[in-house]
Simulated scan of single mutants.
Amino acid sequence: MCDASTAAPGDVLAAAPRTAPGEAVDPIALEPVDEVRITTLVDNVFDALLTGDDHVKRVSFGAGAGVRAPQFEGGTTNVGLVAEHGFAALVTVRRGDRETSLLFDTGLSPDAMVNNADRLGADLSGIQAVVLSHGHFDHAGGLAGLAGRRTGLAAMPMVVHPYLWTRRRLAVPGGDPAELPTLSKRALETEGFQVIERRQPSLLLDNAVLITGEVDRTTDFEHGMPPPHQAWDGAQWRHDPLVIDDQALVVHVRDRGLVVLTGCGHAGAVNIVRHAQRLTGVPTLHALLGGLHLGGPAFEPIIGPTVTALTEMAPALVVPGHCTGWRAQHALAATLPDAWVQGSSGTTYLLTT
């Protein structure tokens, strides 16, 4: 498992910075914050035995109230949190004594995110916006549960890329193509979401949170999805390597640097971080969290140059989750042992000045 963390001779060259072609929408005046708390509401893993510290808060099997289970004395049992192949995070930023929050992705199933939030005692009624990293259903399924909690409330802003609504499918050779669930804009608006479509960067929460918009693809190794991932262009199915609606969330922690949160990281972890640095003019990566999409045979060959580039950035915290894959997890843990932290549903990461 250490092989993946050893850079091949070409890895360093492949991971070298390149100038992004064309014009950029920069600089972005991203206001620094005193603190950001990121609570992973849904991830692929839940481990009740993980330990935390002053900056990483874990939850155990005792999270929330006991649930009914007549097979136990007293009729109840303790539960932990739901883990599923999806991602959702509650992001809270603080400047001085003012705190504001938003949701970044909502998980796979309708109930996992809201149930986990309940068990954590996290109040979702106070969030200011919802951001979807891209249109894949394992990041948007929890919108149904969230909508069920919002009856009679004011419209909730939802920031998305306009290609979020793209029909997609997986056409693996030798099997029948499987179309993926596609979000309905009309249904979301009917449920009280105010859909805001942007290809360019967006500043939210009083200019304290940056949503990257489309990410410049500047590395020569982050090629995106393999040929079986296809999109409907209105006339036919075509290979969709870029997942162009992929975007990340960025916060600048004062005197520390950038905190970058990804959903799947389809644009490539290195592309995303460099794009955030370019947009903001902040050179330091303080933390990288979220899905890095390095699992499986199509992506494992780029683990080496990805780890090489991230090592050069020297982040203080790396929490790969969701679709990162176990080989990449081991490579990052071996190469960045002081920064790497195991992700888990329900974990809160505190990043402060």
Score class of each variant (00 low, 15 high):
2 C>D: 08
10 G>E: 14
11 D>T: 04
11 D>C: 14
26 D>C: 13
27 P>F: 11
29 A>L: 13
31 E>M: 13
31 E>D: 14
32 P>G: 08
38 I>E: 01
42 V>N: 04
44 N>Y: 07
49 L>Q: 12
55 H>V: 10
60 S>C: 07
62 G>W: 12
64 G>I: 10
78 N>W: 13
78 N>M: 11
80 G>V: 05
91 V>H: 04
94 R>S: 09
95 R>C: 01
106 T>I: 06
111 D>K: 09
119 R>S: 10
123 D>S: 09
130 V>S: 03
134 H>Q: 15
141 G>I: 02
144 A>F: 01
150 R>D: 04
150 R>N: 09
153 L>V: 10
153 L>H: 13
156 M>F: 06
159 V>Q: 10
166 T>Y: 03
167 R>E: 12
168 R>Y: 03
170 L>K: 11
171 A>F: 02
172 V>W: 06
173 P>R: 05
186 R>A: 15
191 E>Q: 15
197 E>W: 07
197 E>Y: 07
202 S>V: 13
211 I>V: 15
213 G>D: 00
214 E>A: 14
222 E>V: 05
238 R>H: 12
241 P>R: 13
246 D>H: 13
249 L>M: 12
250 V>R: 00
258 L>F: 05
259 V>N: 00
259 V>W: 00
259 V>A: 03
260 V>S: 02
260 V>M: 02
263 G>E: 00
264 C>K: 12
265 G>I: 02
270 V>G: 02
270 V>T: 10
284 T>G: 00
288 L>C: 09
291 G>P: 04
295 G>P: 01
298 A>D: 12
300 E>P: 03
309 A>H: 02
312 E>F: 00
316 A>F: 00
316 A>P: 00
322 H>L: 03
330 H>L: 14
332 L>H: 03
338 D>L: 08
342 Q>A: 15
